[in-house]
Design a protein around this nucleic acid. Sequence first.
DNA 1: CGGTCAGTTGATTCTTCTCAACGGAAGTGG
DNA 2: CCACTTCCGTTGAGAAGAATCAACTGACCG
Lengths: 241, 241
Amino acid sequence: MSQTLIDIAALQHVCEQCGIYKLCMPAGLGSGDLDALDNLIKRRRPLERGQHLYESGDDFHAIFALRSGTLKTYVMTEDGEEHIVGIKMPGDLLGLSDINSPHYTRSAKALETCSICEIPYDRFAQLTREIPDLHHHILGMMSREIHQEQDRVTMCKNLSAEARLAGLLLLISQRFLQRGFSATEFNLSMSRSDIANMLGLAVETISRLFTQFQEHGLLEVERKHVKLLDLHGLEQMLRKS
Amino acid sequence: MSQTLIDIAALQHVCEQCGIYKLCMPAGLGSGDLDALDNLIKRRRPLERGQHLYESGDDFHAIFALRSGTLKTYVMTEDGEEHIVGIKMPGDLLGLSDINSPHYTRSAKALETCSICEIPYDRFAQLTREIPDLHHHILGMMSREIHQEQDRVTMCKNLSAEARLAGLLLLISQRFLQRGFSATEFNLSMSRSDIANMLGLAVETISRLFTQFQEHGLLEVERKHVKLLDLHGLEQMLRKS
DNA sequence: CGGTCAGTTGATTCTTCTCAACGGAAGTGG
DNA sequence: CCACTTCCGTTGAGAAGAATCAACTGACCG
C-alpha cells in the first residue's frame, strides 16, 4: 500500500519531464484519479542495451512512454539491411504510428538501459474517449511526429553531408535541452554506423566529418562523448547546400 | 432542395473512392444522418491550377478532402526555396498534420483544377468525440501519414537516383490503381522540377533518367504523359543501391 | 512574332562512396 | 590476468554518381 503511494509520487516526478505528462495528467484529473492512472500505466522492468521493447510483427497491444535511456526504432529491408526510423529519448512515445495496425511495424531496440511505461492500448483508447482534451493531445503528438518525419525528409533530400550531421547534432542538442540536460555536452547513445544510417551517409563520411568539425573548432569529440563549442557555426553549416 | 438531394447522391458516389469515406460515413450512420453530414461538409468552388487552398501561416480552421485533381503541399526555406512535402491525390486528406497548430504549417497549391470538400475542424472534432469509430479511423489516417513520410525518408536516404524515380513512378501508379484509374498510363500533374524537388535530385538528372528508362523499354514518356511498359523492371530498379 | 519557360543533352566538376588498411577498445575464454 | 577475437572508429586513395554550367529546342502566351 505504501509501496503504491511511493510509486505515484515517483510517477509524478518523472512525468514532469515526460512527453506523456499532459496525456497522463490532463488539467481536470483529480488526485483521486491518480490511483486509476497508476493502475493504467504499467512500469516495466528496465530494458538492457541491445534488448528489444518490441519487434516488427509483434501484436500491437500498447503504447510506450520512455522514461529514461534511448531506443532506436528501425525496419529491416528485404535484403536484411537495417533502416533506422528514429531515435527515441526520454518523454517520447513509442508505438503511435502503429495504432491502425494489428502488428508493430517497426522494431524498437534499447541503445542503453531504458526504463519504460507501458500503456495498454484498449484502456488507453477508452480513456481517450472519456477525456476530450486527451483526444486532442494525442492528435497533437501524432501530428508532431508527422512534422518530424517531414523535416527528416527535407534534411536527407537537399542537404550536404556536413549540413546533415550538423543538423542531427543540433537536433539532439535541442532535445537534450528540452529535457533539462546540457545542450552542449552529451553522450551520443548511437554508434557512428547508426548515425550514418540515419543520415543516409557512409560511416567513413561521418568519421571524417567529426574530425573536420573538430579541426574547425565547432566541437570536441571523444568516442561517444560530444561537446559542442560553436552552436552558431553549426547552424551556419546547416544552411549549406 | 432537389439540389441538396443531388449533392448527397453525388457525395455518396464520390466518397466511395475517397479516403474520407469511412470517416464521413461510418457503418452506424443512418440515412437520416446524411443530411447532417451534408451540412457539415462544405463543397468549395473548384480550385484552379496555381491557386492555393491554404498557405503556410493561415489560421488553421478546417481539414480538407480532395475529390478530384492534385495538389502539392510545400514549405518555403529561409532562402526562398520551395520544399515539396507531398503530392495529394483524390481521396487524400489535407491539414491533418496541422491539427495541433494554430496555423497551417504548409502551403497547398493546385497542380490542376481541383474539387475539394472542406470539413470545419471544430465540428469535425465534435463529431469525432461522438463517434468512437471515427476517432479510431482518424488515428489510422494519421498513422498512415507517418508511415508514408517514413517511407519517403528511406527512399531519399539510401536509394540511387534511378531507384528513386522508379519508386516514385510505382507509387503514383499504385495510387492511381487504388483510385480506379489505370496503373500503367497516366498524366503526371507535376513538372520535372517538382519531381526533382521531391526526390532531392537535379532537374537534369530527372530528364536523363526518363530518356534512359525509355531507352531500356521500361516506359514511354511524352512530356507529362507517362506509359509504364515494364512494372517488373521498374521494381527491380527500385531495389538498386 | 518575340519572349519566356520547361525540358533535353553534353562536358566538366565535385561530393561522397567504396575498397583497403590499421589502431584501439571491449569482450571472451583459457 | 593475459592472449585472442571481434567490433568500432579512423584515415587514405581511387571510383562512381550526381550536380553544375552551358547551350539548345520546342511549347505556350500575350
